[in-house]
C-alpha cells in the first residue's frame, strides 16, 4: 500500500517524458529531415527536395495532428529552410504558414477523404506554393528566375508524397501518438 504512490509518481514522470517525446516527434523529424536532405550527397534534385519535404510535413501534420506542429514552430522551420536553402530570409516561413492556414481551413472536409484525394490536394498545394515561391523570389531579386526548378519541385511533390505519407502515417499511429503515452 505504501509503495503505490511512489511507483505512480515515477511512472508519471516517464509518462510525461514519453508524451513530450511523442509531442515533439513531428518537429524533430521535420528538422532532422531538413538537415539530412541538406547533407552534400551530390544527388540531383536535392535542393528542390528540401522545401517539398517541409511542405509535406506541414500539410500532413496540420491535417491529422495540428496540435503537434503549431504556427510558431512552422515559422521557425521556415526560417531554417530559408537559411539552409539560400532563399530570401522569411520567404518560406510565410509560405509554410500560408500552407498551414489553408490546410487547417479545409481540415474538417479533407481529413475524412481517401488517400488519393489528399495526395492530389497536396500536389496542387505544393505546385501552387512552388509557383508562389518562384514569383516572390523573382520579385525580390527583380529578375526572371529559371522555371525548371519549379517543375522539378512539382514532380518531386507529386512523386514523393506517398513515401513521406507512409512514414508519417506510421508515426501518426506509433511514435507521434500523444494519446498513447
Amino acid at each position: 500500500m505504501a509503495r503505490r504512490p511512489a511507483m505512480r509518481r515515477q511512472a508519471s514522470l516517464w509518462r510525461r517524458l514519453d508524451a513530450a517525446s511523442r509531442y515533439m516527434f513531428p518537429l524533430g523529424s521535420l528538422v532532422f529531415g531538413l538537415f539530412a536532405i541538406g547533407m552534400p550527397f551530390g544527388l540531383p534534385g536535392q535542393a528542390e527536395l528540401a522545401p517539398v519535404y517541409a511542405m509535406a510535413c506541414v500539410f500532413f501534420w496540420s491535417l491529422y495532428r495540428p496540435s503537434s506542429l503549431p504556427a510558431p514552430l512552422v515559422a521557425i522551420v521556415g526560417l531554417l529552410l530559408d537559411l539552409l536553402g539560400l532563399s530570401p530570409f522569411g520567404l518560406w516561413a510565410v509560405l509554410l504558414l500560408v500552407l498551414q492556414g489553408v490546410t487547417l481551413a479545409l481540415r474538417r472536409r479533407l481529413a475524412q477523404q481517401s488517400f488519393f484525394l489528399t495526395w492530389a490536394v497536396f500536389s496542387a498545394f505544393a505546385s501552387a506554393l512552388a509557383c508562389l515561391a518562384w514569383m516572390a523570389q523573382s520579385l525580390l531579386t527583380l529578375s526572371v528566375l529559371p522555371v525548371l526548378p519549379v517543375l522539378v519541385e512539382m514532380l518531386l511533390a507529386c512523386g514523393f508524397y506517398p513515401a513521406f505519407a507512409g512514414f508519417f502515417i506510421r508515426a501518426h499511429r506509433g511514435p507521434a501518438a500523444v494519446e498513447l503515452a
Binding site: V74, A75, F89, G90, A93
Partner: peptide, 30 residues
C-alpha cells in the same frame, strides 16, 4: 497565433530585405 506568426514572418521578409547582413550572419553561423 497563425495570423500573428504570418504577420511576423512577413515583417521578417521586409527586415531581411532591408538588412542583408542579418541573414548573412545567421547563415554563416549555421
Amino acid at each position: 497565433t497563425l495570423p500573428v506568426m504570418l504577420m511576423f514572418s512577413l515583417g521578417l521578409v521586409l527586415i531581411g530585405r532591408a538588412d542583408q547582413n542579418l541573414s548573412g550572419h545567421l547563415r554563416s553561423g549555421l
